[in-house]
Design a protein around this nucleic acid. Structure first.
Lengths: 367, 367
DNA sequence: ATGAAAGCGCTAACAC
DNA sequence: GTGTTAGCGCTTTCAT
């Protein structure tokens, strides 16, 4: 059976029509076509196993391809979001391209350029935040959705979770459980909204409980920094019982083995909790307490937002004028749109917040 | 600064040369160009931040884009291989597209079609084995490298690890450790080379040790089947001490929590080992024994193989005639080439085997 | 050493 | 309803 080298011309010839008609068929403009013609083309396409060439399509209008760029493919959060996006897109006949930036400015920029030149119609990205100018430029031409980490990129939408609230809630409940002290462990300070907000939530809970906060910074993939923290916890014990709460699952993955080596009994002397829901939660005994991020809804919302903006757009290239106001459809979501003024044209910025859920394990339940 | 809409024409105009010359520059044909021209173009491209449009390039020759398709992005093995491939490719100025097939025939086929129509120059795939005909057709036009799971697809190369030997070695060492019995747990039987070979290695070790084999089949993501196995292990205890050895890390991820609930002491009554090296090995106490697959070398080899075939090819479309004989460069690799005859033209098939390494933990060391 | 022009597969006016 | 035609951005003969 046929392969890639079957072109629209072959279909046209075999069906005895012009390539225009076939093109119309491909683009589902059935109104301008007799039923017979339509069925004939359908049959021929089937027989020849014809597949429109996306490069040729892209050279004109759209590719029907969306790209998603994540920081780290080894992060269950990322994979989960990607799958969710993929399911929405494939249902709508869109293809998905996946890329990884390693949180590296240069790599991210290159990846974006490459995807653009590849002709993707829209981009969903968990960004390093170091290429906001580039993203803004891209957003001026095609839909851009920032996921997980919020940034104020004109023209781009944001889909995030309520990091601050979830973090505060988790910390509060640790205190309610009876922990006298909660050590918050995070990667080195940055302007990443996720880090800032999770820290803020923790600090707010400490303040509310009138318990001194205790923040420790570590470097991932640096055994020394992790080991030092563990040693500290042993040599200068916090007020007991205390809990250790990491700002994300990757930090916990590295820290956990060290924690279990400390001479504290879990959960009665030391509770353990983390933001994220690592796939290995059930491996730990007692079971890890964690924060499940709404990866499915985030992916769905991100995908829908891109698609909606693709549709609403007056043309494939944003014409000066209106870019339709977009609003969230998710009932749980909290949307705030703030209009931007740029190059004299109106654009809508939009943020959708989808709440996380604390999954209480027994590694942080005093008994 | 400039963006995607800068075309070769703009560069040509700004540099005061014809687009042909710019095209030559892009394709590094510096011989046919004066040094001044070359430098002028270079400067203009820099200034305009020009980026050739891959779709337009692809419509003619190559895209300089390779695709990698894996079964499951949540599998550390996959991510690891992808990163390795990516590093080789980006160094050579190639872009990488990532896709996930979910081991689903239909999805895989669609993904492949989409990638082809996207214009990728070559494909690296961990295949379900259900689309060999399609892959063969693709392999007739562009480099195809089968990774992890071996199949006899004419025209395609294979990059795999020594599943059989590694599995046998692990099992043998479990017996040497003093385990009287090893339960081998795998996903439902299939023709996937990885499953077959890992099983074969286990069986061979049993035979050599004159110990009866004990194979249990489970379904992943089916708690019932996993729970049933655990229950069996408790109600009908194997000869002690015994070891449980899973055929891959995903199965172990699901089984492990059940195992630790059994009334056996680890490792003295029950040893635990798995093929693969899950990222959570260090979370377990005692530490899990596992088989580290050579993901880096596999990725590098796969990428190099694609690139080599891309270069060796007489043209972008395989002309009837010679497709150069390809040979492995990895000193550790064991290559067997078997010529195929297809459509009257000679093609080379090739398999590169890269050995895995057993990482002995203490969850399967009797003390 | 450089350029003019044809054409890759497709879409979109604009006829008829 | 259907076809003709002009490109999209690039590569590649073939001239000069």
């Amino acid at each position: 059976m046929g392969n890639q080298s079957v072109t629209i011309k072959d279909v046209a010839k075999a069906a005895g029509v012009s390539i225009t008609t076939v093109s119309r068929y491909i683009n589902k403009r059935y109104e301008s076509m007799s039923v017979e013609t339509r069925e004939r083309i359908e049959k021929v396409i089937e027989e020849l196993n014809y597949q429109p060439n996306k490069m040729a399509q892209g050279l004109k209008g759209q590719t029907r391809t969306i790209a998603v760029v994540v920081v780290n493919l080894g992060y269950p959060f990322a994979v989960s979001v990607i799958r969710s996006i993929s399911s929405v897109l494939s249902e709508m006949g869109y293809a998905l391209l996946v890329g990884e930036s390693a949180d590296d400015t240069e790599q991210e920029a290159q990846l974006l350029q490459s995807l653009i030149s590849q002709g993707v119609d829209g981009i969903i990205i968990q960004t390093s935040g170091q290429n906001n100018e580039l993203l803004e430029r891209i957003a001026a031409e095609k839909p851009v959705v920032l996921i997980d980490r919020q940034f104020d990129v004109p023209g781009a939408a944001n889909v995030i979770t309520n990091n601050q609230e979830a973090s505060r809630e988790l910390t509060e409940r640790l205190f309610q459980q009876g922990y006298q002290h909660v050590v918050f462990v995070s990667e080195e300070p940055s302007n990443l909204s996720t880090r800032v907000e999770r820290l803020d939530g923790y600090l707010a809970a400490c303040r509310a409980a009138s318990i001194p906060s205790d923040v420790r910074w570590v470097l991932r993939e640096d055994p020394v920094s992790i080991a030092a923290l563990a040693k500290d916890l042993q040599s200068q014990p916090p007020k007991k019982p205390f809990a250790v709460y990491t700002a994300n699952g990757l930090v916990m993955l590295e820290l956990y083995p060290k924690l279990t080596h400390l001479r504290y009994s879990i959960p009665n002397e030391m509770g353990i909790a983390t933001f994220d829901e690592p796939d290995w939660v059930h491996v730990t005994r007692p079971r890890l307490t964690c924060v499940r991020q709404p990866t499915d809804e985030m992916g769905i919302t991100a995908a829908q937002t891109v698609l909606r903006r693709l549709t609403d757009r007056p043309a494939q290239v944003a014409k000066p004028g209106q870019v339709g106001l977009v609003r969230a459809t998710n009932p749980d979501s909290d949307t705030k749109a703030h209009p931007k003024n740029r190059f004299g044209e109106r654009t809508e910025n939009q943020t959708t917040v989808i709440p996380s859920e604390v999954i209480w394990g027994d590694s942080s339940s005093l008994r």
